[in-house]
Amino acid sequence: KLLSSIEQACDICRLKKLKCSKEKPKCAKCLKNNWECRYSPKTKRSPLTRAHLTEVESRLERLE
């Protein structure tokens, strides 16, 4: 599967780190437990900047 097509777990399953069936409108866990089942939009991760990478590398060197 391509990364862009990976389905996201519902908010509660993601928060509780449960295996989500990803069914809509309610996944199996939410249906069974009568929880409100919501699927928040995916958040875009910002790409690493060179400055951040350099900072992490220098912190790693100090720890070694």
Rank of each mutant, 00 (worst) to 15 (best):
residue 16 K to M: 00
residue 11 D to F: 01
residue 42 K to V: 09
residue 35 W to H: 13
residue 20 C to T: 04
residue 29 K to P: 04
residue 38 R to N: 15
residue 63 L to C: 11
residue 44 K to F: 08
residue 59 R to T: 06
residue 62 R to A: 15
residue 54 T to I: 08
residue 13 C to T: 00
residue 4 S to C: 12
residue 23 E to W: 08
residue 11 D to R: 00
residue 1 K to F: 13
residue 29 K to N: 07
residue 37 C to R: 04
residue 29 K to L: 08
residue 35 W to Y: 15
residue 56 V to G: 00
residue 39 Y to I: 06
residue 2 L to T: 11
residue 43 T to M: 11
residue 4 S to L: 15
residue 10 C to E: 08
residue 64 E to W: 08
residue 7 E to M: 08
residue 3 L to A: 12
residue 33 N to Q: 13
residue 50 R to P: 01
residue 42 K to Q: 12
residue 31 L to P: 03
residue 3 L to W: 10
residue 61 E to S: 11
residue 24 K to F: 15
residue 23 E to C: 13
residue 57 E to W: 04
residue 1 K to W: 03
residue 25 P to M: 06
residue 24 K to L: 10
residue 26 K to N: 15
residue 25 P to E: 08
residue 35 W to N: 14
residue 60 L to Q: 05
residue 56 V to E: 04
residue 61 E to H: 13
residue 51 A to T: 08
residue 48 L to F: 05
residue 24 K to T: 15
residue 54 T to H: 09
residue 27 C to F: 06
residue 20 C to K: 05
residue 20 C to H: 01
residue 36 E to Q: 09
residue 4 S to T: 10
residue 51 A to F: 10
residue 18 L to T: 03
residue 47 P to E: 06
residue 29 K to E: 02
residue 9 A to R: 02
residue 5 S to F: 11
residue 58 S to Q: 13
residue 48 L to E: 01
residue 51 A to N: 14
residue 34 N to A: 14
residue 61 E to W: 13
residue 9 A to Q: 06
residue 6 I to C: 12
residue 36 E to S: 13
residue 7 E to V: 09
residue 47 P to K: 08
residue 43 T to E: 15
residue 9 A to T: 03
residue 5 S to T: 08
residue 40 S to Y: 06
residue 5 S to I: 12
residue 8 Q to E: 03
residue 7 E to W: 11
residue 51 A to D: 05
residue 23 E to I: 09
residue 24 K to I: 14
residue 44 K to T: 12
residue 11 D to S: 05
residue 53 L to N: 02
residue 20 C to V: 01
residue 7 E to T: 09
residue 3 L to Q: 07
residue 55 E to Q: 10
residue 18 L to I: 07
residue 19 K to W: 04
residue 55 E to R: 09
residue 13 C to H: 02
residue 23 E to A: 14
residue 45 R to N: 01
residue 3 L to P: 07
residue 57 E to L: 02
residue 8 Q to M: 10
residue 64 E to G: 05
residue 39 Y to R: 07
residue 64 E to S: 13
residue 2 L to K: 09
residue 34 N to H: 11
residue 62 R to L: 12
residue 53 L to E: 08
residue 6 I to M: 15
residue 19 K to L: 05
residue 8 Q to H: 10
residue 64 E to V: 10
residue 44 K to M: 12
residue 64 E to K: 09
residue 7 E to Q: 09
residue 35 W to I: 15
residue 19 K to D: 03
residue 1 K to L: 13
residue 2 L to Q: 15
residue 3 L to C: 12
residue 36 E to C: 15
residue 45 R to D: 01
residue 38 R to S: 14
residue 44 K to R: 13
residue 18 L to R: 05
residue 36 E to V: 14
residue 22 K to I: 00
residue 63 L to Y: 06
residue 60 L to A: 13
residue 26 K to F: 15
residue 57 E to D: 06
residue 43 T to G: 11
residue 22 K to A: 02
residue 53 L to W: 05
residue 33 N to C: 12
residue 18 L to A: 15
residue 54 T to M: 08
residue 60 L to S: 06
residue 29 K to T: 07
residue 46 S to H: 03
residue 6 I to Y: 11
residue 15 L to S: 09
residue 62 R to N: 08
residue 30 C to E: 03
residue 17 K to R: 08
residue 20 C to D: 02
residue 41 P to F: 03
residue 50 R to G: 02
residue 7 E to N: 09
residue 20 C to W: 02
residue 27 C to Q: 03
residue 49 T to H: 06
residue 59 R to A: 09
residue 5 S to M: 12
residue 55 E to A: 14
residue 8 Q to W: 08
residue 21 S to I: 00
residue 47 P to W: 06
residue 35 W to R: 11
residue 7 E to D: 12
residue 51 A to P: 00
residue 32 K to G: 11
residue 54 T to N: 10
residue 27 C to R: 07
residue 24 K to R: 12
residue 5 S to C: 11
residue 47 P to H: 04
residue 17 K to C: 03
residue 27 C to E: 00
residue 26 K to M: 14
residue 48 L to N: 02
residue 46 S to V: 00
